[in-house]
Simulated scan of single mutants.
Amino acid sequence: MGIFLGSTSREGLDFEDNQGKPLFQPALAKEGPVGEHEMYAFEPALCIGGKADLEHMVKLSMDVHLMVLDQLRR
């Protein structure tokens, strides 16, 4: 993991919106920094028709969100 993260640029890991613009810095400005057990995510989730844009990005509990996404894929 360290080798992967050490050889990858921050920009290369950023998720892009529907217009190809990076979302991390705008999400940080909108929602604030994430805590130890939080993440930025789209609401509704992309897999159920959500949109990849800043308007639909929220900060939420990582554990709960990943569990919900896992249930949606079944």
Score class of each variant (00 low, 15 high):
residue 18 N to E: 03
residue 23 L to K: 03
residue 43 E to D: 04
residue 9 S to C: 14
residue 45 A to N: 00
residue 24 F to S: 00
residue 23 L to G: 01
residue 3 I to V: 15
residue 38 E to L: 02
residue 1 M to W: 11
residue 59 K to V: 08
residue 1 M to V: 09
residue 13 L to R: 09
residue 50 G to N: 03
residue 3 I to D: 15
residue 70 D to P: 01
residue 67 M to L: 14
residue 52 A to E: 03
residue 50 G to L: 03
residue 66 L to S: 14
residue 43 E to Y: 07
residue 33 P to S: 15
residue 73 R to E: 14
residue 52 A to W: 02
residue 46 L to K: 05
residue 55 E to P: 01
residue 46 L to C: 09
residue 45 A to P: 00
residue 43 E to A: 02
residue 45 A to Y: 00
residue 9 S to L: 15
residue 36 E to R: 09
residue 1 M to R: 11
residue 26 P to E: 02
residue 21 K to I: 08
residue 49 G to I: 10
residue 66 L to F: 12
residue 22 P to F: 04
residue 50 G to C: 06
residue 13 L to M: 15
residue 45 A to K: 01
residue 57 M to A: 04
residue 21 K to V: 07
residue 41 A to Q: 00
residue 71 Q to Y: 14
residue 4 F to A: 06
residue 12 G to H: 14
residue 26 P to Q: 01
residue 46 L to W: 09
residue 5 L to V: 13
residue 67 M to C: 13
residue 16 E to R: 12
residue 22 P to S: 12
residue 30 K to Y: 02
residue 17 D to W: 00
residue 68 V to L: 13
residue 35 G to C: 08
residue 21 K to G: 03
residue 36 E to Q: 12
residue 36 E to M: 10
residue 38 E to S: 00
residue 61 S to H: 11
residue 23 L to F: 06
residue 73 R to P: 04
residue 36 E to S: 12
residue 22 P to L: 07
residue 68 V to D: 11
residue 30 K to T: 01
residue 2 G to H: 09
residue 16 E to H: 12
residue 67 M to F: 15
residue 51 K to W: 07
residue 69 L to E: 08
residue 37 H to W: 14
residue 46 L to M: 12
residue 58 V to W: 05
residue 8 T to R: 09
residue 18 N to C: 03
residue 43 E to C: 04
residue 4 F to T: 06
residue 73 R to M: 12
residue 65 H to C: 07
residue 10 R to N: 14
residue 47 C to I: 10
residue 66 L to C: 13
residue 63 D to H: 06
residue 7 S to P: 10
residue 23 L to S: 03
residue 65 H to T: 05
residue 36 E to K: 09
residue 12 G to P: 06
residue 72 L to K: 11
residue 56 H to G: 02
residue 14 D to M: 12
residue 45 A to F: 01
residue 13 L to P: 02
residue 31 E to W: 03
residue 31 E to H: 07
